[in-house]
């Protein structure tokens, strides 16, 4: 798969900047500086950068949970003003509703948007089927493993049929095995559904395993300073020389970024 440049982007960030005034010191803290980004429909984009560089803030601005200090976010050409079901966000800590069963977590979105109950339940069951969670629909989140919780969270987001799926380090709290399994699962899901995914991670390995394009962010204030195209075929193999070479290249860049910053 290849990114078709020139095609109308699904999601576009135009000179997005964000700064906070630190309450304690009164100092202005710049988090994002002049971020430009165009995401074409159906693509899988990964954002990597040092921890605390503002990746999460960027995703939250796209989701509409925070507002930019300058610049704008366009979805299919119209500016984003707040959160909405057209941009689904998957949190690192799952953020499932602990008082709702697996099935009811998935139907939350359709429920609040007034979709007919029967239809929503049927759709949710289908989603859970594809997530391999059919037998767990009556369990509560506390009864699930981390990987299962994250699959429920993804299903809950997909249930509102978002145009873009925003994922904020979704596998960071899983153990290595579960993380690998979830990465494979996500690739499979993406290949099958053709969803547009923006995936934030601090793991270069994960980014190379998942994305068609890996964008390197600088230290704070974050800017997109490097683009890497990963034209490796899916499903990817971590021992493949192309894979290791690309991963080494990105790691080298990130190291450079840190050194530069310190200099």
């Amino acid at each position: 798969m290849e990114i078709k440049a020139g095609r109308e982007p699904l999601l576009e960030l135009r000179s997005l900047s964000k700064s906070f005034v630190e309450a304690r010191t009164g100092k202005v803290l710049e988090v994002l500086s002049d971020v430009d980004l165009r995401i074409a429909p159906g693509t899988f984009t990964c954002l990597v950068g040092p921890s605390g560089c503002g990746k999460t803030t960027l995703l939250r601005i796209i989701a509409g949970l925070e507002t930019a200090t300058a610049g704008e976010v366009l979805l299919e050409g119209s500016p984003v003003t707040g959160p909405g079901p057209d941009r689904g966000l998957v949190f690192q800590e799952y953020a499932l509703f602990p008082w709702r069963t697996v099935l009811k977590n998935v139907t939350f979105g359709p429920d609040v948007s007034g979709e007919t109950r029967a239809g929503a339940i049927a759709d949710a069951r289908e989603l859970l089927e594809t997530m391999g969670l059919s037998t767990h629909e009556d369990l509560y989140p506390r009864e699930l493993s981390g990987g299962m919780k994250q699959r429920v969270a993804i299903a809950r987001t997909l249930a509102v049929k978002p145009k873009v799926l925003l994922m904020d380090e979704p596998f960071a709290s899983l153990d290595a095995q579960a993380r690998n399994a979830m990465q494979e699962f996500l690739v499979e899901l993406w290949l099958r559904t053709g969803a547009t995914i923006v995936f934030v991670t601090h793991s270069v390995d994960e980014a190379v395993f998942l994305g068609q394009e890996v964008l390197g962010l600088s230290r704070r204030p974050a800017r997109i300073v490097q683009r890497f195209t990963c034209d490796l075929a899916y499903p990817r193999n971590r021992t493949d020389p192309g894979f290791t070479a690309l991963r080494a290249r990105i790691l080298e860049y990130l190291k450079q970024e840190l050194v530069d910053d310190h200099a």
């Binding site: 689904g88 966000l89 509703f97 939350f108 987001t157």
Partner: peptide, 12 residues
């Protein structure tokens, strides 16, 4: 994060 998640799922 729970109200935030609800907001992104379209809740008023």
């Amino acid at each position: 994060r729970l109200p935030e998640a609800a907001r992104t799922l379209g809740a008023s």
